[in-house]
Design a binder for these strands. Structure first.
Lengths: 193, 193
DNA sequence: GTCTATAGGGGGATAGAC
DNA sequence: GTCTATCCCCCTATAGAC
Protein backbone atom coordinates (compact mmCIF):
# COMPACT_ATOMS: atom_id res chain seq x y z
CA UNK A 1 0.00 0.00 0.00
CA UNK A 2 1.58 3.25 1.23
CA UNK A 3 -1.57 4.76 -0.23
CA UNK A 4 -2.40 8.41 0.22
CA UNK A 5 -4.51 7.35 3.12
CA UNK A 6 -1.57 5.71 4.84
CA UNK A 7 0.50 8.84 4.41
CA UNK A 8 -2.09 10.78 6.34
CA UNK A 9 -2.17 8.20 9.11
CA UNK A 10 1.61 8.19 9.40
CA UNK A 11 1.51 11.95 9.63
CA UNK A 12 -1.23 11.75 12.26
CA UNK A 13 0.92 9.47 14.40
CA UNK A 14 3.77 11.97 14.18
CA UNK A 15 1.59 14.95 15.02
CA UNK A 16 -0.03 13.18 17.95
CA UNK A 17 3.37 12.16 19.25
CA UNK A 18 4.49 15.79 18.99
CA UNK A 19 1.41 17.66 20.20
CA UNK A 20 -0.83 15.09 21.78
CA UNK A 21 -4.40 14.28 20.88
CA UNK A 22 -5.56 17.53 22.43
CA UNK A 23 -2.96 19.46 20.48
CA UNK A 24 -3.75 17.91 17.13
CA UNK A 25 -4.89 20.58 14.66
CA UNK A 26 -6.35 19.33 11.45
CA UNK A 27 -4.54 22.10 9.63
CA UNK A 28 -1.20 21.03 11.10
CA UNK A 29 -1.93 17.44 10.20
CA UNK A 30 -2.72 18.48 6.65
CA UNK A 31 0.58 20.33 6.36
CA UNK A 32 2.49 17.38 7.84
CA UNK A 33 0.89 14.99 5.35
CA UNK A 34 1.26 17.41 2.47
CA UNK A 35 -2.46 17.47 1.67
CA UNK A 36 -5.38 19.81 2.25
CA UNK A 37 -7.73 19.82 5.21
CA UNK A 38 -10.60 19.11 2.85
CA UNK A 39 -9.05 15.82 1.81
CA UNK A 40 -8.66 14.74 5.40
CA UNK A 41 -12.33 15.32 6.09
CA UNK A 42 -13.16 13.54 2.84
CA UNK A 43 -11.36 10.42 4.08
CA UNK A 44 -12.10 10.49 7.79
CA UNK A 45 -15.37 12.36 8.17
CA UNK A 46 -14.43 14.26 11.33
CA UNK A 47 -11.84 14.71 14.04
CA UNK A 48 -12.95 11.63 15.93
CA UNK A 49 -12.69 9.62 12.73
CA UNK A 50 -9.08 10.72 12.35
CA UNK A 51 -8.36 9.62 15.89
CA UNK A 52 -10.09 6.28 15.56
CA UNK A 53 -8.30 5.34 12.37
CA UNK A 54 -4.99 6.49 13.76
CA UNK A 55 -5.46 4.24 16.76
CA UNK A 56 -6.12 1.32 14.47
CA UNK A 57 -3.11 2.24 12.38
CA UNK A 58 -0.63 2.45 15.23
CA UNK A 59 -2.02 -0.78 16.54
CA UNK A 60 -1.33 -2.65 13.32
CA UNK A 61 2.08 -1.11 13.18
CA UNK A 62 2.90 -2.16 16.73
CA UNK A 63 1.81 -5.67 15.94
CA UNK A 64 4.18 -5.69 13.03
CA UNK A 65 7.25 -4.56 14.89
CA UNK A 66 6.59 -6.76 17.88
CA UNK A 67 5.92 -9.94 15.93
CA UNK A 68 7.70 -9.84 12.61
CA UNK A 69 11.27 -11.09 12.64
CA UNK A 70 13.92 -11.50 10.00
CA UNK A 71 13.33 -14.34 7.52
CA UNK A 72 16.31 -16.40 8.66
CA UNK A 73 16.30 -15.40 12.30
CA UNK A 74 16.27 -18.31 14.74
CA UNK A 75 12.78 -19.02 16.11
CA UNK A 76 12.23 -17.63 19.59
CA UNK A 77 11.18 -19.67 22.58
CA UNK A 78 8.03 -18.51 24.39
CA UNK A 79 10.01 -16.93 27.19
CA UNK A 80 12.08 -14.87 24.76
CA UNK A 81 9.04 -13.97 22.74
CA UNK A 82 7.31 -12.78 25.89
CA UNK A 83 10.20 -10.51 26.76
CA UNK A 84 10.36 -9.25 23.19
CA UNK A 85 6.73 -8.33 23.05
CA UNK A 86 6.86 -6.39 26.30
CA UNK A 87 10.30 -4.81 26.00
CA UNK A 88 10.02 -3.74 22.38
CA UNK A 89 7.55 -1.06 23.47
CA UNK A 90 10.24 0.47 25.63
CA UNK A 91 12.75 1.63 23.07
CA UNK A 92 13.87 5.12 22.27
CA UNK A 93 13.30 5.02 18.53
CA UNK A 94 11.08 7.41 16.59
CA UNK A 95 8.51 4.79 15.68
CA UNK A 96 8.16 3.28 19.13
CA UNK A 97 8.02 6.71 20.72
CA UNK A 98 5.27 7.71 18.32
CA UNK A 99 3.32 4.58 19.01
CA UNK A 100 3.68 4.82 22.76
CA UNK A 101 2.86 8.51 22.88
CA UNK A 102 -0.16 8.08 20.63
CA UNK A 103 -1.34 5.06 22.58
CA UNK A 104 -1.03 6.91 25.88
CA UNK A 105 -2.89 9.91 24.50
CA UNK A 106 -5.68 7.79 23.16
CA UNK A 107 -5.95 5.95 26.47
CA UNK A 108 -6.12 9.26 28.33
CA UNK A 109 -8.61 10.69 25.85
CA UNK A 110 -10.85 7.67 26.13
CA UNK A 111 -11.47 8.56 29.76
CA UNK A 112 -13.56 11.48 28.52
CA UNK A 113 -14.52 10.36 25.04
CA UNK A 114 -16.74 7.27 24.97
CA UNK A 115 -16.37 7.09 21.19
CA UNK A 116 -12.80 5.88 21.64
CA UNK A 117 -13.48 3.33 24.35
CA UNK A 118 -14.70 0.40 22.35
CA UNK A 119 -11.76 0.28 19.95
CA UNK A 120 -9.35 0.75 22.80
CA UNK A 121 -10.91 -2.00 24.89
CA UNK A 122 -10.79 -4.41 21.97
CA UNK A 123 -7.15 -3.65 21.19
CA UNK A 124 -6.24 -4.04 24.85
CA UNK A 125 -8.00 -7.37 25.06
CA UNK A 126 -6.13 -8.76 22.06
CA UNK A 127 -2.86 -7.66 23.59
CA UNK A 128 -3.67 -9.15 27.01
CA UNK A 129 -4.68 -12.46 25.46
CA UNK A 130 -1.51 -12.61 23.44
CA UNK A 131 0.59 -12.11 26.56
CA UNK A 132 -1.53 -14.61 28.50
CA UNK A 133 -1.01 -17.22 25.79
CA UNK A 134 2.75 -16.76 25.93
CA UNK A 135 2.72 -16.98 29.72
CA UNK A 136 0.77 -20.22 29.33
CA UNK A 137 3.49 -21.63 27.09
CA UNK A 138 6.15 -20.85 29.68
CA UNK A 139 4.03 -22.16 32.57
CA UNK A 140 1.82 -24.91 31.11
CA UNK A 141 0.53 -26.02 34.51
CA UNK A 142 -0.76 -22.60 35.58
CA UNK A 143 -4.55 -22.12 35.66
CA UNK A 144 -6.05 -19.86 33.01
CA UNK A 145 -7.37 -17.33 35.53
CA UNK A 146 -3.89 -16.78 36.96
CA UNK A 147 -2.40 -16.43 33.51
CA UNK A 148 -5.00 -13.84 32.60
CA UNK A 149 -4.39 -11.85 35.78
CA UNK A 150 -0.63 -11.88 35.28
CA UNK A 151 -1.07 -10.75 31.67
CA UNK A 152 -3.35 -7.91 32.71
CA UNK A 153 -0.84 -6.75 35.29
CA UNK A 154 2.13 -6.97 32.94
CA UNK A 155 0.41 -5.01 30.20
CA UNK A 156 -0.90 -2.41 32.66
CA UNK A 157 2.59 -2.13 34.14
CA UNK A 158 3.94 -1.64 30.65
CA UNK A 159 1.53 1.26 30.10
CA UNK A 160 2.39 2.80 33.43
CA UNK A 161 6.14 2.60 32.83
CA UNK A 162 5.71 3.92 29.31
CA UNK A 163 3.88 7.00 30.56
CA UNK A 164 6.57 7.70 33.13
CA UNK A 165 9.23 7.34 30.50
CA UNK A 166 7.46 9.67 28.08
CA UNK A 167 6.64 12.24 30.76
CA UNK A 168 10.33 12.44 31.58
CA UNK A 169 10.42 10.85 35.00
CA UNK A 170 12.07 7.56 34.12
CA UNK A 171 15.11 6.71 32.02
CA UNK A 172 14.43 4.19 29.28
CA UNK A 173 17.07 1.74 30.52
CA UNK A 174 15.63 1.77 33.98
CA UNK A 175 12.14 1.28 32.61
CA UNK A 176 13.36 -1.80 30.76
CA UNK A 177 15.01 -3.18 33.87
CA UNK A 178 11.82 -2.69 35.85
CA UNK A 179 9.74 -4.35 33.16
CA UNK A 180 12.10 -7.34 33.04
CA UNK A 181 11.84 -7.61 36.82
CA UNK A 182 8.07 -7.56 36.58
CA UNK A 183 8.08 -10.46 34.11
CA UNK A 184 10.41 -12.34 36.43
CA UNK A 185 8.13 -11.73 39.42
CA UNK A 186 4.97 -12.82 37.61
CA UNK A 187 6.63 -15.97 36.28
CA UNK A 188 7.74 -16.99 39.77
CA UNK A 189 4.19 -16.43 40.95
CA UNK A 190 3.06 -18.91 38.28
CA UNK A 191 5.61 -21.56 39.14
CA UNK A 192 4.35 -25.05 40.05
CA UNK A 193 5.00 -25.78 43.72
CA UNK B 1 -12.14 28.20 54.41
CA UNK B 2 -14.92 26.81 52.33
CA UNK B 3 -14.50 30.26 50.91
CA UNK B 4 -15.94 31.24 47.59
CA UNK B 5 -12.58 30.42 46.14
CA UNK B 6 -12.66 26.86 47.47
CA UNK B 7 -16.11 26.34 46.01
CA UNK B 8 -14.75 27.17 42.59
CA UNK B 9 -11.85 24.74 43.02
CA UNK B 10 -14.15 21.95 44.13
CA UNK B 11 -16.31 22.62 41.10
CA UNK B 12 -13.22 22.62 38.89
CA UNK B 13 -12.24 19.19 40.22
CA UNK B 14 -15.69 17.91 39.35
CA UNK B 15 -15.65 19.38 35.87
CA UNK B 16 -12.16 18.05 35.14
CA UNK B 17 -13.24 14.60 36.28
CA UNK B 18 -16.19 14.83 33.92
CA UNK B 19 -14.58 16.47 30.90
CA UNK B 20 -10.85 16.27 31.41
CA UNK B 21 -8.32 19.09 31.47
CA UNK B 22 -8.66 19.51 27.72
CA UNK B 23 -12.45 19.52 27.98
CA UNK B 24 -12.75 22.07 30.76
CA UNK B 25 -14.85 25.06 29.64
CA UNK B 26 -14.77 28.11 31.82
CA UNK B 27 -18.46 28.68 31.25
CA UNK B 28 -19.30 25.17 32.40
CA UNK B 29 -17.09 25.62 35.43
CA UNK B 30 -18.88 28.88 36.25
CA UNK B 31 -22.26 27.17 36.06
CA UNK B 32 -21.03 24.27 38.20
CA UNK B 33 -19.73 26.65 40.85
CA UNK B 34 -22.79 28.89 40.63
CA UNK B 35 -20.80 32.01 39.75
CA UNK B 36 -20.08 34.03 36.63
CA UNK B 37 -17.16 33.54 34.25
CA UNK B 38 -16.01 37.04 35.08
CA UNK B 39 -15.52 36.12 38.72
CA UNK B 40 -13.43 33.13 37.81
CA UNK B 41 -11.09 35.24 35.72
CA UNK B 42 -11.01 37.77 38.56
CA UNK B 43 -9.71 35.08 40.92
CA UNK B 44 -7.51 32.98 38.67
CA UNK B 45 -6.33 35.31 35.92
CA UNK B 46 -6.64 32.84 33.05
CA UNK B 47 -7.32 29.25 32.09
CA UNK B 48 -3.84 28.09 33.07
CA UNK B 49 -4.27 29.71 36.46
CA UNK B 50 -7.45 27.72 37.00
CA UNK B 51 -5.65 24.50 36.10
CA UNK B 52 -2.62 25.17 38.26
CA UNK B 53 -4.66 25.98 41.36
CA UNK B 54 -6.98 23.05 40.81
CA UNK B 55 -4.15 20.57 40.52
CA UNK B 56 -2.63 21.93 43.72
CA UNK B 57 -6.01 21.65 45.41
CA UNK B 58 -6.46 18.07 44.27
CA UNK B 59 -3.01 17.11 45.45
CA UNK B 60 -3.61 18.40 48.95
CA UNK B 61 -6.88 16.57 49.06
CA UNK B 62 -5.33 13.24 48.00
CA UNK B 63 -2.74 13.53 50.72
CA UNK B 64 -5.53 13.95 53.21
CA UNK B 65 -7.57 10.87 52.28
CA UNK B 66 -4.64 8.52 51.92
CA UNK B 67 -2.95 9.42 55.20
CA UNK B 68 -5.50 10.72 57.67
CA UNK B 69 -7.40 8.11 59.67
CA UNK B 70 -10.04 8.37 62.34
CA UNK B 71 -8.76 9.61 65.74
CA UNK B 72 -9.54 6.37 67.56
CA UNK B 73 -8.96 3.97 64.69
CA UNK B 74 -6.61 1.10 65.52
CA UNK B 75 -3.08 1.69 64.21
CA UNK B 76 -2.35 -0.20 61.00
CA UNK B 77 0.50 -2.63 60.51
CA UNK B 78 2.87 -1.88 57.61
CA UNK B 79 1.33 -4.55 55.39
CA UNK B 80 -2.17 -3.15 55.91
CA UNK B 81 -0.95 0.38 55.44
CA UNK B 82 0.71 -0.64 52.19
CA UNK B 83 -2.52 -2.12 50.89
CA UNK B 84 -4.46 0.92 52.04
CA UNK B 85 -2.23 3.37 50.28
CA UNK B 86 -2.38 1.50 46.99
CA UNK B 87 -6.00 0.37 47.06
CA UNK B 88 -7.48 3.66 48.25
CA UNK B 89 -6.83 5.10 44.82
CA UNK B 90 -9.00 2.43 43.28
CA UNK B 91 -12.40 3.27 44.67
CA UNK B 92 -15.49 4.35 42.85
CA UNK B 93 -16.25 7.42 44.92
CA UNK B 94 -16.62 10.89 43.52
CA UNK B 95 -13.54 12.26 45.25
CA UNK B 96 -11.20 9.42 44.30
CA UNK B 97 -12.48 9.40 40.75
CA UNK B 98 -11.88 13.12 40.52
CA UNK B 99 -8.38 12.81 41.89
CA UNK B 100 -7.43 9.86 39.73
CA UNK B 101 -8.80 11.46 36.60
CA UNK B 102 -6.94 14.68 37.32
CA UNK B 103 -3.73 12.82 38.07
CA UNK B 104 -3.99 10.88 34.83
CA UNK B 105 -4.63 14.08 32.94
CA UNK B 106 -1.63 15.70 34.55
CA UNK B 107 0.59 12.74 33.70
CA UNK B 108 -0.62 12.70 30.10
CA UNK B 109 -0.25 16.46 29.75
CA UNK B 110 3.31 16.36 31.04
CA UNK B 111 4.33 14.31 28.01
CA UNK B 112 3.81 17.41 25.88
CA UNK B 113 4.29 20.15 28.45
CA UNK B 114 7.74 20.21 30.06
CA UNK B 115 6.53 22.84 32.53
CA UNK B 116 4.51 20.19 34.33
CA UNK B 117 7.26 17.60 34.52
CA UNK B 118 9.14 18.82 37.53
CA UNK B 119 6.14 18.92 39.88
CA UNK B 120 5.02 15.56 38.64
CA UNK B 121 8.42 13.94 39.05
CA UNK B 122 8.68 15.26 42.59
CA UNK B 123 5.23 14.06 43.58
CA UNK B 124 5.93 10.66 42.05
CA UNK B 125 9.22 10.33 43.89
CA UNK B 126 7.59 11.07 47.24
CA UNK B 127 4.97 8.44 46.54
CA UNK B 128 7.51 5.81 45.44
CA UNK B 129 9.64 6.41 48.52
CA UNK B 130 6.64 6.10 50.77
CA UNK B 131 5.73 2.75 49.24
CA UNK B 132 9.37 1.59 49.35
CA UNK B 133 9.56 2.45 53.06
CA UNK B 134 6.44 0.41 53.79
CA UNK B 135 7.79 -2.52 51.77
CA UNK B 136 10.97 -2.26 53.83
CA UNK B 137 8.97 -2.57 57.03
CA UNK B 138 7.28 -5.73 55.78
CA UNK B 139 10.53 -7.21 54.43
CA UNK B 140 13.29 -5.83 56.65
CA UNK B 141 15.97 -8.06 55.13
CA UNK B 142 15.41 -6.96 51.54
CA UNK B 143 18.10 -4.78 49.94
CA UNK B 144 17.19 -1.14 49.29
CA UNK B 145 17.56 -1.43 45.51
CA UNK B 146 15.04 -4.26 45.35
CA UNK B 147 12.62 -2.35 47.55
CA UNK B 148 12.90 0.69 45.31
CA UNK B 149 12.31 -1.35 42.16
CA UNK B 150 9.28 -3.07 43.65
CA UNK B 151 7.85 0.28 44.74
CA UNK B 152 8.35 1.75 41.30
CA UNK B 153 6.58 -1.19 39.72
CA UNK B 154 3.68 -1.13 42.16
CA UNK B 155 3.05 2.57 41.73
CA UNK B 156 3.37 2.34 37.95
CA UNK B 157 1.01 -0.63 37.98
CA UNK B 158 -1.41 1.42 40.05
CA UNK B 159 -1.35 4.20 37.45
CA UNK B 160 -1.83 1.74 34.62
CA UNK B 161 -4.77 0.03 36.27
CA UNK B 162 -6.29 3.36 37.20
CA UNK B 163 -6.22 4.52 33.58
CA UNK B 164 -7.86 1.32 32.40
CA UNK B 165 -10.53 1.64 35.01
CA UNK B 166 -11.24 5.26 34.10
CA UNK B 167 -11.21 4.59 30.38
CA UNK B 168 -13.88 1.98 30.87
CA UNK B 169 -11.98 -1.20 30.13
CA UNK B 170 -11.68 -2.58 33.62
CA UNK B 171 -14.22 -3.02 36.41
CA UNK B 172 -13.15 -1.45 39.69
CA UNK B 173 -13.41 -4.69 41.66
CA UNK B 174 -11.24 -6.47 39.17
CA UNK B 175 -8.72 -3.64 39.26
CA UNK B 176 -8.51 -3.97 43.03
CA UNK B 177 -8.03 -7.73 42.80
CA UNK B 178 -5.24 -7.27 40.28
CA UNK B 179 -3.56 -4.64 42.45
CA UNK B 180 -3.75 -6.89 45.50
CA UNK B 181 -2.23 -9.72 43.46
CA UNK B 182 0.57 -7.41 42.38
CA UNK B 183 1.40 -6.54 45.98
CA UNK B 184 1.39 -10.23 46.79
CA UNK B 185 3.74 -11.02 43.90
CA UNK B 186 6.21 -8.28 44.77
CA UNK B 187 6.26 -9.28 48.42
CA UNK B 188 7.06 -12.90 47.53
CA UNK B 189 9.85 -11.63 45.35
CA UNK B 190 11.28 -9.82 48.38
CA UNK B 191 11.05 -12.83 50.68
CA UNK B 192 14.26 -14.00 52.37
CA UNK B 193 15.35 -17.37 51.00
C1' DG C 1 -16.35 41.08 44.72
C1' DT C 2 -19.69 40.00 41.52
C1' DC C 3 -22.39 40.47 37.54
C1' DT C 4 -23.77 41.11 32.31
C1' DA C 5 -22.52 41.73 27.81
C1' DT C 6 -19.54 41.32 24.18
C1' DA C 7 -15.13 41.43 21.58
C1' DG C 8 -12.15 38.66 19.26
C1' DG C 9 -10.05 34.72 17.26
C1' DG C 10 -8.98 29.99 16.60
C1' DG C 11 -10.11 26.03 14.40
C1' DG C 12 -13.56 22.33 12.92
C1' DA C 13 -16.20 21.49 9.13
C1' DT C 14 -18.38 22.30 4.45
C1' DA C 15 -19.29 23.99 -0.41
C1' DG C 16 -18.09 23.86 -4.80
C1' DA C 17 -14.60 24.01 -8.57
C1' DC C 18 -11.53 21.04 -10.96
C1' DG D 1 -9.88 12.43 -5.20
C1' DT D 2 -8.07 16.77 -4.26
C1' DC D 3 -7.93 21.67 -3.63
C1' DT D 4 -9.30 26.61 -2.22
C1' DA D 5 -12.03 29.51 0.17
C1' DT D 6 -14.84 30.46 3.77
C1' DC D 7 -18.42 29.96 7.16
C1' DC D 8 -19.57 30.15 11.78
C1' DC D 9 -19.56 28.27 16.24
C1' DC D 10 -17.50 28.02 20.42
C1' DC D 11 -14.85 29.56 23.90
C1' DT D 12 -11.41 32.62 26.18
C1' DA D 13 -10.88 36.92 28.01
C1' DT D 14 -12.08 41.82 28.95
C1' DA D 15 -14.92 46.14 29.79
C1' DG D 16 -17.70 48.36 32.61
C1' DA D 17 -21.83 48.73 35.72
C1' DC D 18 -23.20 47.89 40.44
Amino acid sequence: MASRNTRILEAAARVIARRGVRGLRVEELAAEAGVSTGLIYYHFKDRTGILRHTLEFINDRAERYTTVRGPDAPPLGPREELEQILLLELQDTAEVRENSAAWGELRASAVFDPALREDLARATLVWVQEVAALLGQVRPMAPAAKLAAAAERLTALMEGLSMRWLSGGLAIDHARTLMAGGIEAELSGLEPR
